[in-house]
Design a protein around this nucleic acid. Structure first.
Length: 436
RNA sequence: GUGGCCUUGGUGUAAUGGCAGCACAAGGGCCUGUGGAGCCCUUAGUGGCGGUUCGAAUCCGCUAGGCCACCCCA
């Protein structure tokens, strides 16, 4: 619980990512990069700011994201821009704008980076957060969304995450969903008095959302009501069956959740979430979410292109890694050599030395702003380096710095021109004895 | 947008209406060019505004942040 009451600090819900935390991000990103590449998803980046209308049109004007969570800003030129709250609209826009329609299909894209939603911060939820995101444009085959689920499962596995489940459902398409909506609405209306207040509102605006209400009373009613799977049209039914068949073939464990609907307007057919097993009850912290959105592209471009995609929440994945005690090793260099200098000539000489070590790819550390040898050795000691090179006036004159072993306290003077070689040998010896 | 808890040096904490203290960290010294220990010194704090009171870190109000939950989502 930290809160430095400073003049300037990060805005609410935003935070600095410090070195320790950064190691986790690097880990997640590097694995995502690697797997994206293997599975043929091409990495692209889109601007953080987009035309505000893009999200209104695609994410949906009645969604919470658009209604209350978007960062909206007006430029000096009078345009309305939004900080992107999700990736899909941006990628769909980019698909049309860059003529990807003419690329060999399906077009498989990968992107990652910060997203912004204005809401109250909470565990695993920030106003600036990060996602890894995959989209496939131009395939209506069920394998397309399975591929994305597969990819996410692989990435999570590689990160060391087990104990997760894929929850999956089909919410139909424009053929069958309207009818189901009607049936559901009729059913819910009959039981309206037993629903919670918000669900009574939902009933008018978006009755499907009643399905994933967490109120016990609503769940009770929903459980006895009609399920979408029984109302799918033939095409959606077959599609869904194929999806499940592929998942089984891949050995990906999944759970059918007939009440999974998701909050964005544009989904059709398959919707899925990947959730830690322990959160299955609450479904509070989905690590990954996505689905098919065949109707979206025609809303923002000329052609009607089938598409699907999914997004993984980087912060949530990292939180989960930490909860599961999956540690991430930092890959920064750990210098084993400290260069200590005394006096001006020696300081200049040590600058040259540092460059030589850099060229020889030997990581060194130093504190040029310190002058006393005592202090420099103290620092060297704290940094747990193996060797210290000491250069003073005398050593500059003799062209022979001192090489000191910090463990044994032995030291000897080494001719300047042989120093790098000598250090290399010493480090090699260290490594060998450590292996024994 | 709603609710609960919280806010004291860089960090972790103590003081419950009466002198803001301790530990660690940091910087310096004891020790002129040789570290790890010890000792000494220094820097540095009640988030902000207002109220109650002889007196407020402490009680009250507002405000700003933080954490958590609801809503919703990754």
């Amino acid at each position: 619980m930290k809160k430095p009451r400073l003049k300037f600090q990060t805005p609410t819900g935003m935070r600095d990512i410090l070195p320790e935390e950064e190691a986790y991000y690097e880990r997640v990103y590097s694995i995502a990069d690697q797997y994206a590449d293997f599975y043929g998803f091409k990495k692209i980046e889109t601007p953080i700011l987009e035309d505000y209308e893009l999200f209104v049109k695609s994410t949906g004007p009645t969604t919470d994201i658009v209604e209350k969570q978007m960062y909206l800003l007006k430029t000096k030129g009078g345009e309305y821009l939004a900080l992107r709250p999700e990736f899909t609209p941006s990628l769909a826009r980019s698909y049309f704008e860059n003529g990807m329609v003419a690329w060999p299909h399906p077009v498989k894209l990968y992107t990652r980076g910060p997203l912004f939603r204005y809401e109250r911060p909470q565990a695993g939820r920030y106003r600036q957060f990060h996602q890894i995101n995959f989209e496939t444009f131009g395939s209506k085959k069920p394998i397309a969304e399975v591929e994305i689920i597969w990819l996410f499962v692989k990435i999570l596995e590689k990160l060391g995450i087990k104990n997760i489940v894929v929850e999956i459902n089909s919410i139909g398409d424009s053929q069958c969903r309207p009818y189901y909506k009607k049936v559901l609405t009729r059913y819910l209306k009959r039981n309206e008095t037993a629903l919670c207040a918000t669900c009574r509102k939902r009933l008018k605006r978006n009755p499907l959302r009643v399905l994933d209400c967490k109120e016990v009373r609503c769940q009770k009613i929903v459980k006895q009501g009609p399920q979408i799977v029984d109302y799918l049209c033939e095409e959606c039914h077959d599609h869904f069956e194929k999806v499940l068949e592929y998942l089984e073939a891949l050995g990906i464990p999944y759970i059918l959740n007939p009440y999974l609907v998701r909050g964005l307007d544009y989904y059709t057919k398959t919707v899925f979430e990947i959730i830690p097993q322990k959160d299955q009850e609450t479904r509070q912290s989905a690590l990954v979410g996505g689905g098919r959105y065949d109707g979206l592209l025609k809303l923002i471009g000329k052609q009607d292109i089938p598409a699907c995609g999914g997004a993984g929440g980087v912060e949530r994945i990292i939180d989960f890694l930490k909860e599961e005690n999956i540690s991430v090793k930092r890959k920064e260099s750990t210098p084993e050599i400290f260069i200590a200098q005394l006096g001006d000539e020696a300081k200049i000489e040590s600058l040259k030395l540092i460059e030589e070590f850099q060229k020889a790819k030997i990581p060194v550390t130093f504190q040029l702003s310190r002058d006393s040898l005592t202090n420099q050795l103290k620092i060297a000691n704290r940094k747990k380096v193996k060797y210290v090179i000491i250069i003073g006036k005398e050593e500059v004159l003799k062209k022979a710095p001192i090489l000191r072993n910090m463990e044994t306290g032995d030291q000897k003077s080494v001719p300047r021109n042989r120093l790098i070689k000598e250090v290399k040998n010493a480090l090699k010896k260290e490594k060998r004895t450590r292996l024994k």
